[in-house]
Write a protein that binds this DNA or RNA. Structure first.
Length: 219
DNA sequence: ATCCCGAGGG
DNA sequence: CCCTCTGGAT
């Protein structure tokens, strides 16, 4: 058995770029979910996307964004109405509460403008590090780094992008591999892939769009 | 039956 | 740390 030549760092970077390019093509709805949104729309879409697929989020956002144009619009939406409108995205009570509360704070404390710093975003009720990172990266061009969750961690190891278990170290490895400007989208694409095809228990390698680029570590 | 692309609260 | 929210996928 001939030993495979070790992949250089430059080769790994190119492979990472190829993987993200192919995932973007394979999951257009994931790309769509983060593209071409105002900060407020992006914030709402991101809150809705928790525990929910991009396809379902994309099904409710057009009507939502046509009706609610400002933070104040959400803040004064009557109890029950917004809940019904976002019902199909799950967790509708807590999500509606988060959207209303964050919108109220934006209207009251930020002049109706979604804040553009991590500290201010995380202070908004219903907005955590993950949501804040997506808004920073895709609405304000501050694409500083990956936020590593279980999907991003698992896929990064499986694809041979890192050997680390610690999310902070995985984040460092990914940031070294993927240039600024592609990180937020990269994380989103890895997550979509990790939910739909490269699932934890039984990855469906036979239909995987990045099968040729994947060493399948640990599978 | 079990598992979730997150956040708040105990 | 733990639990809960909630609907849908598997």
């Amino acid at each position: 058995m001939a030993k495979k030549p070790k992949e250089t760092f430059e080769e790994k970077k190119r492979r990472a770029a190829t993987v993200l390019r192919r995932l973007a093509k394979a999951y257009p709805e994931a790309k769509c979910a983060l593209d071409h949104r105002t900060p407020l729309e992006l914030l709402v879409a991101t809150i809705l996307s928790a525990q929910c697929t991009d396809v379902r989020v994309n099904m409710v956002t057009p009507q939502l964004f046509a009706k609610y144009r400002t933070a104040a619009d959400y803040a004064r939406s009557p109890r029950g109405v917004l809940e019904r409108e976002i019902r199909s995205t799950g967790f509708f009570n807590s999500k509606a509460k988060s959207i209303r509360a964050a919108a109220a704070a934006i209207a009251a404390e930020h002049g109706g403008k979604v804040p553009d710093t991590m500290e201010a975003l995380v202070r908004l009720p219903g907005v955590g590090r993950k949501t804040a990172n997506v808004v920073l990266g895709n609405a304000f061009g501050k694409d500083e780094g990956f936020v590593v969750d279980t999907h991003v961690g698992r896929l990064s190891r499986r694809l041979g992008f890192t050997r680390e278990a610690d999310p902070v170290k995985v984040e460092g490895d990914l940031n070294a591999l993927v240039p600024k400007g592609r990180r937020t989208m990269g994380a989103h694409l890895l997550i979509a892939h990790g939910r739909q095809i490269c699932v934890a228990r039984k990855p469906r390698c036979e239909v995987c769009p990045v099968n040729p680029q994947c060493p399948k570590i640990g599978v």
